[in-house]
Simulated assay, not measured.
Amino acid sequence: MIPFSVLDLSPVPDGHKISDALSNTVDLAQEAEAVGYNRFWMAEHHNMPGIASAATSVLIGHVAGQTKRMRIGAGGIMLPNHAPLVIAEQFGTLATLYPDRIDLGLGRAPGTDGVTMQALRRNMSGPDRFPQDVMELVQLFQDPTPEQQVHAFPGEGTHVPVWLLGSSLYGAQLAAYLGLPYAFASHFAPADLDQAVHVYRTTFQPSRFLDKPYFMLAVNVFAGTDDDEGAYLRSSMQQAFALMRVGKRGKLPKPVERIEDHIDPVMLRSVNQQLSVCAYGGRARVASMLEELIQKYQPDELILNGQIHDIEKRITSFKIAAEILSARSA
Score class of each variant (00 low, 15 high):
1 M>L: 06
6 V>H: 07
6 V>M: 05
10 S>R: 03
13 P>V: 00
16 H>V: 01
18 I>M: 12
22 L>C: 05
24 N>Q: 11
24 N>I: 01
26 V>L: 13
27 D>G: 09
30 Q>E: 14
30 Q>C: 12
31 E>Y: 05
33 E>F: 07
34 A>K: 15
35 V>F: 12
35 V>S: 10
39 R>Q: 13
41 W>N: 12
44 E>T: 10
44 E>L: 09
45 H>K: 10
45 H>G: 08
50 G>W: 08
53 S>F: 04
53 S>I: 04
57 S>K: 00
58 V>M: 15
59 L>I: 12
59 L>Y: 13
61 G>A: 13
63 V>F: 11
64 A>N: 08
79 L>F: 11
80 P>I: 06
82 H>L: 07
85 L>V: 07
85 L>I: 14
88 A>F: 08
93 T>G: 13
94 L>C: 06
94 L>Y: 04
95 A>Q: 13
95 A>L: 00
98 Y>G: 11
100 D>K: 14
101 R>P: 11
110 P>G: 13
116 T>K: 01
120 L>M: 15
121 R>P: 06
121 R>Y: 05
125 S>F: 01
130 F>A: 06
131 P>G: 09
132 Q>N: 13
132 Q>I: 01
134 V>A: 06
136 E>L: 08
136 E>D: 14
137 L>E: 06
140 L>H: 10
147 E>Q: 14
149 Q>T: 15
151 H>L: 15
152 A>R: 01
154 P>S: 07
155 G>P: 05
160 V>C: 11
162 V>R: 02
164 L>D: 04
166 G>E: 05
169 L>Y: 02
173 Q>C: 01
178 L>H: 08
179 G>R: 03
179 G>D: 04
181 P>T: 07
183 A>C: 15
192 D>S: 13
196 A>G: 01
196 A>C: 03
196 A>L: 01
200 Y>R: 02
200 Y>M: 03
204 F>T: 03
209 F>Y: 15
209 F>M: 08
210 L>N: 03
211 D>Q: 15
213 P>Q: 05
214 Y>T: 04
218 A>K: 01
220 N>W: 01
228 D>Q: 14
231 A>D: 13
232 Y>D: 02
233 L>Y: 10
233 L>I: 07
240 A>G: 01
243 L>Q: 15
245 R>D: 15
246 V>H: 05
249 R>H: 14
251 K>N: 12
252 L>F: 09
253 P>S: 11
254 K>T: 12
257 E>L: 11
257 E>A: 14
258 R>P: 02
259 I>G: 09
261 D>L: 13
265 P>H: 08
268 L>D: 04
269 R>I: 00
271 V>M: 05
274 Q>K: 11
274 Q>F: 02
275 L>I: 11
282 G>C: 10
282 G>H: 10
284 A>R: 13
285 R>D: 01
286 V>M: 08
286 V>F: 08
290 L>D: 09
293 L>N: 07
293 L>H: 14
299 P>F: 08
301 E>W: 02
303 I>F: 07
303 I>Q: 11
305 N>P: 00
307 Q>K: 11
312 E>G: 00
313 K>V: 00
315 I>G: 09
320 I>E: 07
321 A>T: 08
322 A>E: 01
323 E>N: 13
325 L>G: 06
330 A>C: 01
